[in-house]
Design a protein around this nucleic acid. Sequence first.
DNA 1: TACCCGTGGCA
DNA 2: TTGCCAAGGGT
Length: 386
Amino acid sequence: MNEPILSATDTLNTASDNALPDAASCPPAAATRGFAERVVTWQRQHGRHALPWQNTHDPYRIWLSEIMLQQTQVATVMPYYARFLERFPTVADLAAAPQAVVMELWAGLGYYARARNLHACAQQVVEKWGGKFPPTAEDIQTLPGIGRSTAAAIAAFAYGERSPILDGNVKRVFARHFGIHGDPTTRAVELRMWDYAEKALPPIGPDTPDAMRSYTQGLMDLGATICKRGDPDCGVCPVRATCVALREARQHELPTARIRKAIPERSIGMLIVEHEGRVLLPRRPATGIWGGLLSLPEFDGEEPGTALATFGLPADAIVRIDRLALLSHTFTHFKLHITPWHIRSQSAGSLNTDDWLAIDALPSAALPAPVRKLIDALYGQDDLLR
DNA sequence: TACCCGTGGCA
DNA sequence: TTGCCAAGGGT
């Protein structure tokens, strides 16, 4: 890189952290000049090119990857992506599938609203758009589960549309390169970043589609492989010459860490009720935690007490009760301590027939991660196909 | 507008 | 062990 170092970044807003950003502040043109071109060139030489969802312009495959990758790391997505494509080669196949099957394939990946929206989105594409994804980011964003950034990513990769993304990678790169202080999860800071995202796009020209594909991928690659959270590899960064954080040696202060509240903890008991080769696994409501998945009956506290009768199991139906090892599971927003109870019953009591699942059907069941762990520990599924 | 919504890898 | 947060969206 022999380009002159832009001094215009000196004029950037240097308001202190968490100060209310000046709503009128907008990125100086000089701050973003040449940024995209360097990202594009770098991506083509040093970016990632062999991920399973790359080297295609098929909006279906791109969309599926973008949804799975929301708040989820690449390595985690890989096996799920392969299974989905194998089972649902086209958006029509996905739209036609029962939601329960979609949930089974998604189980373990987390954020289950994504799976419900994925299914609904496929059906809308088929019914409202004739089986083809909408032609612009604006239209794509009207579909369920697709926000502004995901719509832009799909449109850029599939159509080469000139529309900006703003994900976790981009926020980190922008915060450092443009010296943007303040918690990026707050609305005000996020709006500023969208402003930069629009201004930093590759210029309009004959090669805009190709540039947009490389640029969009390049921003993600830059964040994932160079501008990492812990120790950014500034020595080989394509935009180091204009990076505010590097110049001021503040890479570790940016992006500004958000202030986190202590997460609450909760203790519950879970019942593994077994009767005639079946286990009680009612489907959870569509909304809320683990929405749409099968799960074990649960109750507040650790001792079953009167809970069994409440669930429709009379005391004389119970052959044996075993308390299993405590299991803790941490969510983003709270920590759950689970006391599992294995209950052998000689009758189904007044329980709903539909809520029982055969033990040999457990391996493919749509179970939340900690429930999967409990079930596998008890019925010895080890870690075959999960 | 803040909060809700999973899971796993990593320092 | 604990905290952080990743190709965010919905409400």
